[in-house]
Write a protein that binds this DNA or RNA. Structure first.
Length: 556
RNA sequence: UGGGGCGUCGCCAAGUGGUUAAGGCAACGGGUUUUGAUCCCGUCAUUCGGAGGUUCGACUCCUCCCGCCCCAGCCA
């Protein structure tokens, strides 16, 4: 959104009115990931929303790990998430909070609920609980253990905590309403027995609180004022409220739901992303093809581009699918403005300058950016032997100027930042393929208009042979071949784009690219934006962040 | 069909009884250009899921209908 101010969404409106009406004096939000995977672009939207709102209204936003299920979680994910949030630019040296810090308090509150006769230890197994729960149209039935005496519940719950009960044998359930139309209210499980050690609390606990029991109370403890989550939690809200109003908590957080981000041609389901990783479709969570924050980082996409994109998104209750093109727009916008230009030839064709002596120079000064003089210029060698893209040359003189704005035999073209030249002679090998082209430069055409009577067809990129450096490039493309791989439930893997990564070797890059720092992004003129991979490596490899917008192929 | 939520241009989305129905992306024209990039200009919903109704007046209120999403984990 350039010149228009963005409309204020319903959550921000609520915050504004709560502030104005004194409902809250300071807004406190939170971003509560479970450390069971890496953060993706959908999380980025939530991060921008939560931290953004807190910033805008002078409040605060907590990064809090919802680590209530040790079986799925790992310290490695905690570390990755912290790194990603900081990288996105919201907090320096962030000090995260953890649900596990509140396990003692949560346990005490559970005892409180039992004492109030509002929770009970149930001995139904998982399958029986499901049967008793009823279905979407049929009400549930009360558990036979529902009316247990408080004292018995207390002692049983203690036994659960002490590890005296096997996994799966008992649960602590809230006593609410087995006939509720909202299935979440049919005596939800508050605690289950899991005898696995937790990445932070070790073996202290063998019972762990469920999301529904834990989340609202975590919010209350942290005095969260606006607990923002995605739409699928809407039917959990009455339960969220039930715990808050039945427990002696010292705050009354409120939950608000917005539509999560979906992008076409990719997926934003942690479970499915994990599957891509586990089954080696990609090379890890930070594979540049992944819509993860870390993947995008390796792809050379800046935090600002991601933030700009997220801020362009609507916060509403509709669940739509945003065009990947919208994301790409913000990526290109940022990269175009900030990336110095350089040249790299992927599929080299040798050019020999027959009148090299007429050049009368061997170094050329080239601007690093057409619209930003502050990015300076560089010296590039201009030698007798050059490389251009094979696809930038044609021996077909009948090609129209409009259709082929490149080099054609017996015609002129401009080398970017350099001379205008003419292709004079084609050299072929025994098989008849073109191996070299002899060209003649037009003297004094650097930085000057074409002389009378000479009309170069266009401008092409090039590289000097002697000063060039060999490199490889990774060309990334969309992860899936169909717009909505997610909608096909189980078979999203069938739509995996096997050409989402194309590796090209034997490329010739300008010498200065040898010194490119990992993560540094360049625009390879006429090719796209490329960044040197973050991974330590002796070889010179560039990852394509994104191609240049191309309105030409589509018109042919 | 128990409960909850949503349907405005190809995509996202403003709009809360009186506006010519914002804006962004995409697309399509045209201009500038030593990147077929960027940039600039222009075009792009007589219509708001459908049908009725209330009203001088409805995308906005009412009724009915249609469609889509979420909930039946001891996941979050």
């Amino acid at each position: 959104m350039k010149n228009s101010s963005k409309p204020i969404n319903f959550i921000e409106n609520k915050i504004k009115s709560d502030l104005e009406n004194g409902v809250v004096e300071r807004v406190i939000t939170r971003f509560p990931p479970e450390p069971n995977g890496f953060l993706h672009i959908g999380h980025a939207k939530s991060i921008c929303l939560n931290f953004g709102l807190a910033d805008k209204y002078g409040g605060d936003c907590n990064l809090r790990f919802d680590d209530t299920n040790p079986e799925a979680e790992d310290q490695r994910f905690v570390d990755a998430i912290i790194k990603d949030v900081e990288w996105l630019g919201f907090k320096q040296n962030i000090r995260p909070k953890y649900a596990s810090d509140y396990f003692d308090q949560l346990y005490e509150w559970a005892i409180f609920l039992i004492s109030e006769g509002k929770a009970y230890v149930c001995e139904l197994n998982a399958e029986q609980i499901r049967e008793y729960r009823g279905t979407l149209k049929l009400p549930g039935r009360n558990s036979p253990y529902r009316e247990r005496l408080v004292e018995e519940n207390l002692s049983l719950f203690e036994k659960m905590k002490n590890g005296e009960i096997p996994e799966g044998a008992m649960t602590l359930r809230a006593k609410i309403d087995m006939t509720s139309g909202n299935i979440n209210l049919r005596d939800p499980v508050m605690y289950r027995i899991k005898k696995s050690s937790h990445q932070r609390t070790g073996d202290k606990w063998c019972i762990y609180p469920s999301y529904d029991y834990a989340h609202g109370q975590e919010d209350a403890i942290e005095k969260i004022t606006h607990s923002i989550c995605t739409l699928e939690f809407a039917s959990n809200r009455p339960l969220y409220d039930w715990f808050i109003s039945n427990l002696p908590v010292h705050a009354e957080p409120k939950q608000y739901e917005f539509g999560r981000l979906n992008l076409n041609y990719t997926i934003t389901s942690k479970r499915k992303l994990k599957q891509l990783v586990d089954e080696n479709y990609v090379h890890g969570w930070d594979d540049p093809r992944m819509p993860t924050i870390s993947g995008m980082r390796r792809r050379g996409i800046s935090p600002a581009a991601i933030r700009n994109f997220c801020n362009s998104l609507a916060v509403a209750k509709t669940d739509g699918i945003v065009d990947m093109a919208q994301f790409e727009y913000f990526v290109r916008d940022d990269l175009n403005n900030n990336s110095p230009r350089a040249m790299c030839v992927f599929d080299p064709l040798r050019l020999t300058v027959v009148n090299y002596d007429d050049a009368k120079l061997d170094q050329i000064k080239i601007q690093n950016h057409p619209n930003r003089p502050d990015l300076g210029s560089r010296e590039t060698r201009f030698g007798k032997t050059l490389f251009i893209e094979k696809s930038d040359f044609s021996d077909d003189e009948t090609l129209s100027r409009k259709k082929f704005k490149r080099l054609v035999i017996n015609d002129y073209v401009r080398l970017r930042g350099s001379f205008i030249l003419k292709a004079e002679k084609i050299i072929k090998d025994e098989q008849g393929s073109i191996t070299e082209v002899l060209v003649r430069i037009i003297p004094n055409t650097i930085g000057a208009d074409a002389p009378e009577g000479i009309r170069p067809r266009g401008v092409i990129h090039w590289v000097d042979q002697d000063s060039s450096v060999d490199c490889s490039v990774n060309l990334y493309d969309r992860l899936f071949n169909v717009p909505s791989p997610d909608s096909d439930q189980d078979n999203f893997l069938q739509h995996f784009n096997t050409e989402s990564l194309i590796f090209i070797t034997g490329c010739k890059a300008e010498g200065l690219l040898q010194k490119a720092a990992p993560g540094e992004v360049f625009q390879f003129e006429r090719q796209g934006y490329f960044t040197r991979d973050l991974a330590e490596s002796d070889s010179l490899t560039f990852n394509r962040s994104i191609s240049l917008r191309d309105s030409w192929e589509s018109k042919l």
